[in-house]
């Protein structure tokens, strides 16, 4: 029987029992490989062209990070040179962009709450389901980006068109998912609740809603990526600030030394938000 990590037969053995240390090491291999591959390409390209911007070197990246974290965002923002680190960060482009994008993101997320409640109602009240379900199913299939010109006309090119793009892009799926989750609650629970003198609203908000909340939060976690995608699309198409705005501007002159740190920062933010929601889910629902 093959037991060693070095035996290729183990790769196709479903019954393999890798050691904990082996799984730990294996889980980091791809990270290291990506970094190595990047470093390789970067050094190759820099050997050919020492000013290459497409695959910036570590030094360029550090400079890029420094200028995005400590340099003022606007060319005319004359922060006095003696400013503290904190003040520098507060005036930096990454700070301003994060605040701008973050506020859009959270407003959109707040607007998803009514969507979740609608999904709950559709799942539990037959008339709501009859009225909305078919339409939402249809609307869900519309590619929200194609509505952008209409959104510009209705909401202007400022904040609201971007926020609505995110909401319209994500809400239908979330509504349908919540509806589905709601309908998966065992019928016994609802019957039982009614035999315990619950009113309709009691059943919806005290019996069903707390039960579906963990799954709904998971569904929101899965929606983070589409939300970010729509935010980026909106910001790249028309805006005056934001993380994607900066990336779009930097693309004009191949500023990959800024773009790559920005991408990693966005990934980190999303990862953090996801972890926060997961943690929240565990703390809020000890009964899982």
């Amino acid at each position: 029987m093959a037991t060693s990590v070095l035996d290729p037969r183990n790769l196709v053995d479903i019954q393999a029992r890798p050691k904990r240390s082996a799984t730990q090491i294996l889980s980091w291999v791809l990270f290291l490989a990506s970094i190595a591959l990047y470093a390789h390409f970067s050094s190759v390209r820099h050997r050919e062209n020492s000013e290459d911007r497409i695959v910036p070197s570590a030094k360029q990246l550090v400079q890029g990070i420094q200028s995005s974290v400590f340099h003022p965002a606007e060319e005319d923002d004359d922060l006095d040179p003696g400013a503290t680190r904190w003040q520098q960060i507060r005036h930096s482009m990454i700070w301003k962009d994060t605040v701008a994008s973050g506020s859009r993101f959270f407003i959109a997320m707040a607007l998803l709450v009514p969507a979740i409640l609608l999904g709950l109602h559709m799942g539990i009240f037959p008339y709501f389901g009859a009225f909305f379900l078919r339409y939402v199913l249809f609307f869900d299939k519309i590619v929200a980006l194609s509505l952008l010109p209409i959104l510009f006309i209705v909401f202007g090119i400022d904040e609201w068109s971007k926020i609505m793009l995110m909401v319209i892009g994500v809400a239908p799926t979330l509504i349908l998912d919540t509806c589905q989750i709601t309908r998966a609650v065992p019928r016994e629970q609802i019957v039982k609740a009614f035999t315990l003198k619950c009113s309709n609203l009691d059943v919806a908000y005290r019996v069903v809603f707390p039960q579906i909340l963990p799954n709904v939060i998971n569904s929101v976690r899965l929606s983070l990526k589409p939300l970010a995608l729509f935010l980026f699309a909106g910001e790249m198409i028309a805006s005056t600030d934001g993380l994607a705005y900066r990336i779009a501007i930097m693309r004009r002159h191949m500023g990959m030394d800024i773009i790559i740190p920005y991408l990693l920062w966005v990934a980190l933010l999303l990862f953090g938000l996801d972890t926060l929601l997961r943690f929240l889910n565990r703390r809020l629902h000890p009964w899982l």
């Binding site: 510009f152 006309i153 202007g156 090119i157 028309a238």
Partner: peptide, 24 residues
Amino acid sequence: ASRLKLVNTSDSDIAGAFLGNHSN
């Protein structure tokens, strides 16, 4: 120049966005 508020708008949407909203 510094008093203008520049809105970076993709060329694919700039005409529609400008025509659609008279506040631009």
